[in-house]
Design a protein around this nucleic acid. Structure first.
Length: 313
DNA sequence: ACGATTTGACCTTA
DNA sequence: TAAGGTCAAATCGT
């Protein structure tokens, strides 16, 4: 069932579009700052805290943008495609344990995740400035390494349904394949220490965020990357900023793609049920949503994100 | 004592 | 029915 197209929803759509643009612009601004920081314009050492702060800012802005995309009227209507329910809503299993265990002593029904934003990264570490709590681990068929399951530490506090799965790469055991499922809806305060240590997958030495101890951080803090504690504040009008930032977004992406320091690659969506390209959303698809991204989505989404089609239909 | 992790069992989906 | 995802009791760490 598609959402109704009454004038009311159109104005809601316009408002969401505006909010979306604001978040994207914020993200772009932070990304640009980060680029400047990493490009070392002043020949000084970049502070890790500045880098991490900006990374967190970028992630937060884009997470918010994606949350908007993932919400009505862009998002799918629950229940339209089989029994699945978007996780951001009311999953049967979350919450009261006594309820779900009340019947025949077993557990309540739960729906395997579908229709939620999912993406995969390859990285030398698993830290992403979010607080995760491990809730399970499984041996995976044809894989030497177990897969660890993490949920947001604020799942119960704030109802955040974000989860991630971490598994060492078979081909390159130094790297982790991290699958993120659903977006953070919590007010996640960037943590100092990552507590989701998993000895069995060899994560323990890398998960601790005592900056500089893990490989990624080491790379980020390489001597070639100079510090740039402050940035000149732009004084454009908002529309100027809009255009300017939109134009610059592709530069950020180029930098990101070419930047070895991160050694983190966002992979196309890996959907358990379907990997076909038909389900991958390109920029063209996004733009068909009557949302003029001015090229931003074109670059960002086409290159890095493949959206589950259920998100939009 | 309390919160995090481990791990076997349970549950859904293909 | 196999494989993967989640739960929750037991265990561990602080």
């Amino acid at each position: 069932m598609k959402t109704n197209l009454c004038p009311e929803s159109e104005s809601v759509s316009a408002q969401k579009k505006r909010e979306l643009m604001e978040d994207l612009v914020k993200g772009h601004e932070a990304a640009t700052e980060l680029r400047l920081l990493l490009q070392n314009p002043f020949g000084t050492q970049p502070s890790l805290s500045s880098s991490h702060h900006l990374i967190a800012k970028v992630l937060r802005s884009f997470t918010q943008a994606l949350t908007i995309i993932n919400s009505s009227p862009f998002a799918p209507v629950s229940g339209q495609n089989g029994p699945s329910v978007p996780r951001s809503g009311n999953r049967p299993r979350s919450g009261d344990c006594s309820e779900k265990r009340s019947k025949n002593g077993g557990r309540g029904r739960y729906n395997r995740r579908k229709s939620v934003l999912t993406w995969t990264e390859l990285s030398y570490n698993t830290d992403d400035n979010h607080a995760w709590r491990k809730y399970g681990q499984k041996k995976i068929l044809n894989s030497e390494f177990p897969r660890s399951y993490f949920r947001c530490s604020y799942k119960h506090d704030q109802g955040c349904n974000a989860t991630k799965q971490v598994q060492l790469e078979q081909e390159n055991p130094r790297m982790y394949r991290i699958t993120y499922i659903d977006l953070h809806t919590c007010n996640d305060i960037p943590k100092v220490t990552h507590k989701t240590v998993d000895s069995s997958t060899g994560e323990s030495s890398l998960l601790h965020s005592d900056r500089g101890s893990n490989e990624m951080d080491h790379l980020i803090s390489s001597p070639n990357l100079a510090m740039k504690p402050e940035f000149p504040r732009e004084t454009h009008t908002s529309s100027d900023l809009h255009d300017h930032r939109l134009l610059e977004s592709s530069m950020w992406l180029e930098y990101w793609k070419e930047s070895e320091p991160f050694n983190s690659t966002i992979m196309p969506l890996t959907k358990a049920s379907d990997n076909s390209a038909e389900n991958a959303y390109s920029c063209a698809d996004i733009q068909n949503l009557d949302m003029d991204f001015g090229g931003v989505a074109s670059v960002l989404l086409d290159s890095h994100f493949h959206f589950d089609e259920d998100l939009f239909f």
